[in-house]
């Protein structure tokens, strides 16, 4: 049997194949078995968090940090521009497709997690804080 990948100190172990994930509903699932609905449902239940659709608009080698990739996203209804630098093996959950990364081979090698190839145009699951209602918007107590 193939040896289970060992999480290096810098590799987050919640992406290791077989890692147990607790959804906001209390349900437990393995990271490789998660589906889009699990994230959507958890955000609904958790109250303070909101799921955003973040479209990948550009992928390039990071200028500032050699070895990392710069991912450029358009985030949420506002299509806000957000750029993050991540290791190429970092997995992202793509709506309707599942786990994807810039280097599926390295993701499989380091985490044991099967991934699609992340591409421009992919829409990833991200979270942000639920916009707090402004005081004047809050319903007056009946």
């Amino acid at each position: 049997s193939s040896l289970a990948p060992v999480p290096a100190p810098c590799n987050p172990s919640h992406f290791m194949k077989g890692a147990i994930i607790q959804l906001a509903t209390g349900e437990l699932k393995r990271v490789e078995d998660l589906q889009t609905q699990d994230f959507v449902r958890s955000a609904e239940v958790s109250g303070g968090l909101k799921i955003d659709s973040s479209m990948v608009v550009d992928i390039r080698a990071s200028q500032q940090r050699p070895g990392l990739v710069s991912l450029h996203f358009n985030v949420g209804e506002q299509q806000s521009k957000v750029t993050i630098d991540v290791p190429p093996e970092h997995p992202f959950f793509v709506f309707g497709q599942g786990w994807s990364s810039c280097s599926p081979e390295r993701t499989a090698q380091l985490y044991g997690l099967a991934c699609h190839h992340l591409q421009v145009g992919d829409v990833c699951v991200s979270i942000t804080l639920q916009q707090q209602l402004q005081p004047q918007q809050q319903k007056q107590p009946q």
Partner: peptide
């Protein structure tokens, strides 16, 4: 007797990026 090995459980929101636009946006 074998000590039961505790299995770590991770919260769902640790798996997805928190992509809050910076103020400059």
């Amino acid at each position: 007797n074998v000590e039961p090995r505790s299995v770590p459980v991770f919260p769902w929101h640790s798996l997805v990026p928190f992509l809050a636009p910076t103020q400059s946006d």
